[in-house]
């Protein structure tokens, strides 16, 4: 069955303080949806990684938080979007250890491992959109 969205909200991501807020909002949502403590923590951590990328590399953007359902299960989907420089080589960016900004290069790969669904679309010069979902 197709995935349906049952609730949705948007948050700005312009600064490091916004990243903190997004962590808290994601935590509250995950608690509300009945995620286990470990699953909450995984989702909040993934959100933190992607939110920071949006701020640091994407020059800021937004995150859309959606409560989703496929008829049987309930889940949480987060979509990070920016109109920054985009990523030239996606495969490289996804590789653990690759960083262009002095990080550990674990954010993208880690977010992928911490979620059940992962999607990234990026066009050089246009921006980046990363979407993750986790089911309860």
């Amino acid at each position: 069955m197709a995935t349906a969205v049952s609730a949705e909200e948007m948050r700005p991501l312009g600064s490091s303080e916004d990243v903190v807020v997004v962590r808290q909002v994601v935590r509250a949502l995950a608690v509300k949806l009945g995620f286990s403590l470990v699953d909450q923590t995984k989702m909040v951590t993934a959100a933190s990684e992607l939110a920071r990328n949006t701020v640091d590399y994407g020059g800021g953007g937004t995150v859309r938080l959606q409560t989703i359902t496929d008829g049987k299960r309930i889940g949480l989907r987060l979509t990070f979007e920016d109109k920054g420089p985009g990523i030239e080589d996606l495969a490289l960016a996804l590789k653990d250890g690759y960083t262009s900004g002095g990080g550990l290069g674990l954010g993208l790969g880690g977010a992928k491992r911490l979620s059940n669904e992962f999607e990234i679309v990026s066009r050089p010069g246009e921006g980046t959109r990363v979407s993750i979902a986790r089911w309860r």
């Binding site: 403590l37 470990v38 923590t41 995984k42 951590t45 653990d96 674990l106 880690g110 491992r113 911490l114």
Partner: peptide
Amino acid sequence: RPAVAITLVELGL
């Protein structure tokens, strides 16, 4: 905390 440790391992750290 356990949940944090489990998550960090998954993250690759």
